[in-house]
């Protein structure tokens, strides 16, 4: 099956089996390993990516569902020299421990903040926004603080 989509701002065309998920395309075919693999049943959220700007689980999204659409992975957000404000906030607030869930967390946060532009979310709203991504290290607190700080930074522009 030929799949044409936009990945991190660039047009991509790949030939993949029809039963592959987006996660398989990203990790196996394209070597983009920032999108993590774990439960494969949309329960843990480490595979989160943005589909047309909204966070989705790449593990249960068939690659075919991305036909003609735009996918953003953590590699499309910032790099170590030019961090995205959300990534910077995660570092500044000590929100990263083992880090395996963090790409998914950052993208879940970005999706919510983009969906609610200019909004300074309360703690409960942030927790709701992140509930689809499990973190076993941090207890979420510093992640919540980081997202609040990122929202403020983004609102200031």
């Amino acid at each position: 099956m030929r799949l044409d989509f936009t990945l991190n701002g660039e047009a991509v065309a790949v030939e993949v089996p029809p039963d592959w998920t987006l996660l398989q395309v990203l990790r196996r075919e394209l070597g983009l390993l920032g999108t993590k693999e774990n439960c494969l049943e949309a329960e843990c959220g480490v595979c989160s990516v943005l589909l047309d700007g909204r966070v989705v689980n790449a593990c249960i999204l068939l690659a075919a569902q991305c036909q003609g659409r735009s996918v953003t992975t953590i590699e499309g957000l910032g790099d170590p020299e030019r961090l995205h404000p959300i990534q910077q906030a995660f570092l500044d607030h000590g929100a990263v421990q083992c880090g395996y869930c963090i790409p998914g967390m950052v993208l879940a946060a970005k999706s919510w903040l983009d969906e609610n532009p200019g909004r300074l979310p309360g703690e409960d709203e942030i927790r709701e926004a992140l509930a689809g991504t499990l973190c076993r290290c941090t207890g979420y607190q510093k992640i919540v603080d980081a997202v609040a700080a990122a929202a403020a930074a983004l609102a200031k522009g």
Partner: peptide, 21 residues
């Protein structure tokens, strides 16, 4: 002091390679 972790940038950018990767 509350200093940032040494391996943070690789983790927030998805560049860190884990055993699973």
């Amino acid at each position: 002091r509350r200093l940032p972790r040494l391996d943070g940038a690789g983790k927030v950018t998805g560049r860190m390679v884990y055993a699973a990767d």
